[in-house]
Design a binder for these strands. Structure first.
Length: 282
DNA sequence: CTCTATGTTTAATT
DNA sequence: GAATTAAACATAGA
């Protein structure tokens, strides 16, 4: 599941593992994860290349090589990167491996592991459309209520659906959206354009808090491996339990194809655009 | 066996 | 056309 904080964690780990690293060999034969790159091109293009850096936008990772090639990695629902000793055998569900030698002389093997294979690896010489289409990243670029209010005010879609749109905000997934809306006291089904400036500001604060809290957590692994332990959230995964704020039982409902948990008592539903404008003017 | 899952893309329907 | 909804992908765990 990795969402923004999990992918950020993965980026930090990859950065540490790949600092001053040269790729000795790379291999992947999984045509579902490795798309549309061919297995032959994957090994050929990466071998001998020096790693220039690792960056992240939203849920995408980008490993930059010294010849201009970039390897993009999306972890999907269950993907993660792990580091192993150079001679270690394959992991369960391993989909790709990159063997590297670092400046400090250490050799290691990075493995992309992904049970469900919903993740992707894309090799390119320029930024791919999926990367370019991403909206502002709340951590890398920051978010403020003023700029977020622009896309939200232009759509009648449910506010939760908008928060999950990667072109509106990069990296927000079902957990972050659920938590931010609970923190803001806003019903996830609220019409996006019926939010007041103050509502949007509350969502921004809720998002920041959820991201910070998730980043600060201890991580056993990276990517899906380190994601969302039980009891770490206020609303997500707590349907039927009392709302931590008002005590009413949290309810679960499908919205935009995703399971959504919220408090029916203290998360107020915004429906009127006119009322939002009136609140803004007040 | 049934249901659900942190994500995205594509097809079908309104 | 736009907007919504469902299905699909593939696997593990409750």
């Amino acid at each position: 599941m990795p969402e923004l904080p999990d992918v950020e964690w993965a980026a930090r780990q990859l950065r540490a593992w790949l600092r001053g690293a040269v790729v000795r060999s790379a291999r992947s034969t999984d045509r579902r994860v490795l798309r549309p790159t061919s297995p032959a091109a994957f090994g050929r293009a990466l071998s001998g290349r020096r790693v220039r850096g690792v960056s992240r936008r939203g849920k995408w990772l980008r490993i930059e090589l010294d010849d201009g090639h970039r390897l993009f990695s999306h972890l999907g629902m269950t993907g993660s990167w792990v580091e192993r000793d150079a001679g270690a055998g394959p992991e369960r569900h391993e989909r790709a491996r990159i063997d590297v030698a670092r400046d400090d002389g250490r050799r290691s093997s990075l493995r992309y592991v992904d049970a469900r294979r919903l993740g992707r690896l894309v090799l390119a010489r320029e930024d791919i459309p999926e990367w370019r289409a991403l909206g502002p990243d709340p951590l890398a670029d920051g978010v403020d209520a003023r700029s977020l209010a622009v896309p939200l005010g232009r759509s009648r879609r449910a506010v939760k659906d908008m928060l999950l749109d990667q072109s509106v905000l990069a990296g927000v997934g079902n957990v972050l959206a659920t938590e931010a809306l609970w923190a803001a006291g806003i019903d996830p089904r609220s019409r996006s354009d019926a939010l007041s400036r103050r509502d949007v500001a509350k969502i921004v604060r809720g998002l920041r808090a959820a991201i910070e809290r998730d980043l600060a957590r201890d991580r056993p692994g990276c990517g899906a491996e380190g994601a969302s332990p039980e009891g770490a959230h206020s609303a997500y995964g707590r349907a039927g339990q009392p709302c931590p704020r008002c005590g009413a039982p949290l309810v679960r409902q499908m919205l935009a194809g995703r399971s959504t948990t919220f408090c029916p008592r203290c998360q107020v539903r915004r429906t009127s655009v006119r009322a939002a404008r009136a609140r803004d003017d007040a």
